[in-house]
């Protein structure tokens, strides 16, 4: 039942091609442990049988799941804390002052992964606004159907809640459910999750007051980056705010944005008249 050398090699090459992650020889155990649940789910005897079946009958969905199972790294909750500090200290007060009390603020987590970013936003807003569940709606999208389902479920493993989620927020907004932690239902209801491919024309959404588009653009070439930034801008309010990853910028990519320094980080706003 142990993983054959051919199967391991095939998985190594696949993961390297799709994610640039290198699985060193000797990581057979890792492959075995991460893929065994998938094999069992499909009623197969072991990981080699799973690999053989995908090799013989190519199946993009299963292939994608194999890559995800081997590359998924827990995301931090307050990953690069600055865009979240800026949300409560600057962005939210300005938006509340500019909008009518009955206007719902719309926030988009544009590559939501398993939902940490969207729920971080929900927790911050719930702590800052007593009426957050009715005042704000959060749209969370991801390319991966599996990630969208995980975001909808709002359940996180012990290792996931260990990644940069303040303990006070853990006990305030989560309850234990078996070996996992489940987000409070009121916060889960603030979030609408759906599949969305940023590299293709976007569905009708928004208009958004705030967009978190972090650590996504780095994966695309320049023309695609420009196309994505244009489409995102079209879904934003003229006085909206865009947050990119710490290593990303619109400078030299799309000149229709104005960079604003916020604390130690920065945000981007649609340039007037653009």
């Amino acid at each position: 039942m142990t993983l054959t050398a051919t199967s391991f090699d095939w998985v190594r090459q696949l993961v390297h091609r799709e994610s640039a992650i290198v699985l060193q020889p000797g990581k057979e155990y890792l492959v075995e442990a991460r893929l065994l649940p998938m094999a069992q789910q499909r009623g197969m005897s072991g990981v080699s049988e799973l690999v053989e079946s995908v090799r013989n009958r190519p199946d993009p969905a299963t292939t994608r799941r194999i890559v995800e199972a081997l590359t998924t790294n827990e995301t931090s909750w307050f990953r690069d804390g600055d865009p979240f500090t800026a949300l409560t200290s600057t962005v939210l007060p300005q938006l509340l002052a500019a909008r009518r009390p009955d206007e719902r603020l719309q926030i988009w987590s544009a590559a939501c992964s398993s939902g940490q970013e969207a729920y971080t936003i929900a927790m911050l807003l719930a702590d800052a606004l007593p009426n957050a569940p009715t005042r704000v709606s959060i749209t969370a999208t991801d390319l991966s159907q599996q990630m969208v389902e995980r975001t909808r479920a709002g359940r996180f493993s012990q290792l996931e809640v260990n990644r940069g989620l303040p303990a006070t927020m853990l006990v305030r907004h989560f309850t234990r459910s078996g070996n996992e932690w489940e987000i409070a239902p009121a916060l889960r209801r603030m979030i609408t999750a759906s599949e969305c491919n940023l590299a293709a024309p976007l569905p009708r959404m928004g208009p958004f007051d705030v967009v978190y588009l972090r650590n996504v653009l780095i994966y695309f070439d320049l023309p695609t980056k420009q196309a994505i930034l244009t489409r995102v801008r079209q879904l934003m309010r003229p006085d909206g705010w865009l947050f990119l990853g710490a290593a990303e910028t619109t400078l030299g990519v799309d000149e229709n944005w104005e960079r604003v320094v916020l604390g130690r980080g920065s945000a981007y706003r649609p340039r007037k008249g653009a």
């Binding site: 827990e74 307050f78 290792l159 940069g164």
Partner: peptide
């Protein structure tokens, strides 16, 4: 259990 990254995240917080 925790990873080195998790400890780093807490130190950052």
């Amino acid at each position: 259990p925790f990873t080195a990254d998790a400890l780093r995240d807490k130190l950052a917080l």
